[in-house]
Structure formats: structure tokens, C-alpha cells
Design a protein around this nucleic acid. Structure first.
Length: 441
RNA sequence: UGGGUUAUUGUGUAAAGGUAGCACUACAGAUUUUGAUUCUGUCUGUCUUGGUUCGAAUCCAGGUAACCCAACCA
């Protein structure tokens, strides 16, 4: 390019270059070094490469048009001096190219026909084409599309880097990160991500995709494929007073809505853990669950009726006492009873203790990048809630990293990589839809 | 009188001059041994003003709004 008279060495400081560049509304002015001879430019450039000058002392610029309406065309810098150690050339090669100069060439070398990037690079296309033309190389073309934005998160690599570097998340694969490794660790399935991509499409207008669409795709796939199991996240003890104290029954429960998913056995006894939120001392209206005097079905087991309960000195409920109907056993119910609610449970003597990590959106606001000030001011302080004393049914001891589970009535979960045979750790992938939660408020 | 890009329901995306459709969300109802799933139904849209045309989201003209461009970053 120097030999074609299309590039020149400029000795100006970066401040001087910026000054002469003008502004979007004012034209720039030519540098006083712009008219150097080809021979002089060539020699200076070779010296730059050889390390004869210090960083910032000289740059090589394309000779285009300082009055161009596209600022990128106002004699953009091609090479700057950097005395950086390179893993291949060591300290011999002291100049490094700018993005716009390198971009088209790396595409061209690989014979790329469609080089895809985001909208902010639209003004760069003119320069991309100019370099390819000036160099006379394979004409790759750049096509721009809108980037994917999603509510309650940030997608820019630069912003995500800050979250990692400044410790707001544990790493690039933190399940709260909108990265592929984060998605995987959180339990997203490949199919659900592909379906999501297909649904959102590709276009050239700015967009903001609802997180709920991604959640929909997740639930759609997981609902069809995840094995159902029972886990109690906030345990409270339930004692069946009329069930033999040292009896264990092995009940059968289906693994999913599709019969082909098969069945498994769950141990049942007189002392169970149930979810604290499934009992209300003073029931709300339209309450289908447990309350003094009310009946519920224990999933895949019996119907029980709440007789009484214990409270500690702080007013917290500590134990719930029920009686069961022996003829109401799941699958062979002859009791004739009809109950509105079914709750999940695990047998206290057989349950495995597990850690469960509940994730929520990383940011409090829909579009953190649009807020005033640092986007990190809007981080959701409750994006991770760790439960260390959850109880899960014994079948989960055999869980593998590939498994996806639905903890019945609680959501979809998978094993975390921190998990071990001694300490099971589960990540919540996504909650179930919860119309009751909405109805309450 | 800088230049560039984009405008279809709350969100995303179709409709290449001929019925504005699909999905998510929201809401209502039915079924349900998961207040899940499934099923049924309802709501909301062509940025604006003109023009061309039998007929315009689409073509033309003028407005408006949003985003991008002044790193020796990518």
C-alpha cells in the first residue's frame, strides 16, 4: 500500500491526530506528514517494524480522505508501534495492526464469503471494503445483524468480563452468566437453546428478548424429558400417628408423564419431610394444601389429614401430626375421598441431605445497560440462594451430570460440578410456572 | 442541510402490491394424584402526514422517533 501511495507514516502524537480528525459534524484536516515520498515512507515503516522508534512515536496511516463524512475513512491508522513480546516472533517485530486493517484480511485469507458481525460495525464496512480493494485480495463481505439482548442480563463480553473480574459471579461458567458454559452448568439443554434461537430470529433492528421466552423453551424440553423426583427444599417434619412406627413401604411412582419413562420405588414411613410452605396454620382462601383439619394427597402415597401441630417458643411450627387413610393408597384408592391438593414429601429415615442452589435473575432491572451510571449498580443481591439442608429421595444418590430432573412442584434441577457422592449439590435450572404464587399477590 | 442504520400488539418475528399471521407474555375457563403439563378462549399492532394504485405494512415524497460514528480498543 505504501508503494501504491495509499499509506504514509505519521509522526504526530495521538492527541494531534485526534485533533486533526475533526468531529462527526466537522471535516478533518490533512496531517503535515501526509505528503512524504514513497521511499521515505517505506524506510520509516521498515524502521518502525525493526524497533527503531518508541511506542507511539510513529504510526502508519491509510491515505484516504480527511474530509470524509465517515470518520473511519479519515486516514485510519493501520499499524502502531508496540514493543510487545510475541509468542512467535519474540521481540523482533515491533508493529501491530489495527482491527479494521486486519479484519478483512483474516476473512479474505480464509475465503470467508459472509463475515457476520453486529450493527455497530456498519460504518466499518466501508473501510473493510476499501482495504480489500486496495490490497486486491479475495473479496469477503461483511454483513451486520442486531445483537441479541435479553431482559435482566447483559450480553456484552466487556461487561461480562467485569462481572467475572470484579467477583460478582464465580467465573465464566457461573450458572447466572448468559454464557454457553454458564447455561450448561445451570442445566440448559442443547435443544432448548436451539429452539430459542429459532424462535427469536435474526434481524437488523435493536431488540430486547423477554427472558420468559428462554424459560418457555427450557420448560418445553425439560417437561418432555426430565425424570420426576421428590425433594423438599425447606423441610418441616410430618408425623403420621396412625402409621406403624417401624414400617417401611416401597411405593411406586412414575418418572414422568410419558409411560416410557418408567417407574421407580420410593420408601414411605411414618415420619416424613414436607415443604414448610405447604402448611398454613390459618389457611388462605382457595388454599388446597395442608391446614389444621384439612386433607391432602401425599404424591404417589396416601391421603392424610392434619390433626394437630407443635410450635416452638418463637411461634415457628416444628412438627405436624396427621392421620392417614389406609385405603387411599395411590393407584388403589378405595376411600372415596376427594382432595384438592397433592404435595410432595420424602421419608425422613431414607432421605439424602443435599445442597440446592437457587438462581434468580442477575439484575434487578430489565435493561441494566440503559440505566444511569454503572450497570453493576443494578445487580440483584439475591441472584443466588443456597439451601444446605434440603432432603431428596434416595434414588438421587445415583444421579449423574447428564441427568435432568424435575423436583416435583419445585422446578427443574441438575447436578452441579461441585457435587460429590458425599455431598450432592443441585442447581435450579428454571422454576415451574406458578399460578398460585401469582394468585396470592 | 454531518453521515449511517432501524421503525409491524407488552416482547420477538412473518407477510416480495391482494384476508396483517405465528410464538412468548398477560387474562379467563376446562381437565389434572405436580396450583405443573395438556386443552379451549380473549385482549392489544403496520411511527406520522400526504401521494401513486381497483387495492399499500410493502412503492414515492415530506416529517417524527430510536440507535451508531470523534481509542495508537475490538
Amino acid at each position: 500500500m505504501i508503494q501504491k501511495g495509499l499509506a504514509y507514516v505519521d509522526d504526530s502524537t495521538s492527541e494531534a491526530i485526534a485533533l486533526l480528525k475533526g468531529t462527526p459534524t466537522e471535516a478533518g484536516k490533512d496531517s503535515s506528514y501526509r505528503s512524504r515520498s514513497i521511499e521515505e515512507n517505506l524506510q520509516l515503516f521498515l524502521d518502525m517494524k525493526a524497533g527503531k522508534y518508541k511506542d507511539g512515536e510513529k504510526v502508519l496511516r491509510a491515505k484516504i480522505d480527511m474530509e470524509h463524512t465517515n470518520m473511519l475513512m479519515r486516514d485510519p491508522i493501520i499499524y502502531r508501534i508496540k514493543h510487545a513480546h510475541h509468542h512467535r516472533t519474540g521481540d523482533k517485530w515491533c508493529i501491530y495492526p489495527m482491527y479494521d486493517f486486519a479484519h478483512g484480511q483474516s476473512d479474505s485469507i480464509e475465503k470467508i464469503t459472509h463475515s457476520i458481525c453486529t450493527l455497530e460495525f456498519i460504518p466499518h464496512r466501508e473501510l473493510y471494503d476499501w482495504f480489500i480493494q486496495a490490497l486486491g485480495i479475495f473479496p469477503s463481505h461483511q454483513y451486520e445483524f442486531a445483537r441479541l439482548n435479553m431482559t435482566y442480563t447483559v450480553m456484552s463480553k466487556r461487561k461480562l468480563l467485569q462481572l467475572v473480574n470484579e467477583g460478582f459471579v464465580t467465573g465464566w461458567d457461573d450458572p447466572r452468566m448468559p454464557t454457553i458454559s454458564g447455561f450448561r452448568r445451570k442445566g440448559f439443554t442443547p435443544l432448548s437453546i436451539r429452539n430459542f434461537c429459532e424462535k427469536i430470529g435474526v434481524a437488523r433492528r435493536e431488540n430486547m428478548i423477554d427472558l420468559s421466552l428462554l424459560e418457555f423453551c427450557l420448560r418445553e424440553d425439560l417437561n418432555a424429558t426430565a425424570n420426576r423426583v421428590m425433594a423438599v427444599l425447606d423441610p418441616i417434619q410430618l408425623i403420621i400417628t396412625n402409621y406403624p412406627a417401624n414400617q417401611t413401604e416401597h411405593l411406586t411412582s412414575e418418572n414422568g408423564p410419558d409411560e416410557s419413562m418408567g417407574n421407580r420405588e420410593i420408601p414411605f414411613s411414618n415420619t416424613l419431610w414436607i415443604e414448610r410452605e405447604d402448611f398454613m396454620e390459618v389457611p388462605a382462601k382457595k388454599w388446597f394444601r395442608l391446614a389444621p383439619g384439612s386433607m391432602v394427597r401425599l404424591k404417589s402415597a396416601y391421603i392424610v389429614q392434619c390433626d394437630t401441630f407443635d410450635k416452638d417458643e418463637n411461634g415457628n411450627i416444628t412438627k405436624i401430626y396427621c392421620s392417614y387413610f389406609a385405603n387411599s393408597k395411590s393407584g388403589q384408592d378405595e376411600s372415596g375421598l376427594h382432595v384438592k391438593g397433592t404435595i410432595h414429601w420424602v421419608s425422613a429415615a431414607h432421605a439424602i441431605n443435599a445442597e440446592v442452589r437457587l438462581y434468580d435473575r442477575l439484575f434487578k432491572v430489565e435493561n441494566p445497560s440503559a440505566e444511569e451510571g454503572d450497570f453493576k449498580n443494578n445487580i440483584n443481591p439475591d441472584s443466588l440462594h443456597i439451601i444446605s439442608n434440603a432432603y431428596v429421595e434416595p434414588a438421587l444418590q445415583a444421579a449423574t451430570m447428564e441427568d435432568r430432573f424435575q423436583f416435583i412442584r419445585k422446578g427443574y434441577f441438575c447436578l452441579d460440578k461441585d457435587s460429590s457422592a458425599q455431598q450432592l449439590i443441585f442447581n435450579r435450572t428454571v422454576t415451574l410456572k406458578d399460578t398460585w404464587e401469582k394468585a396470592k399477590s
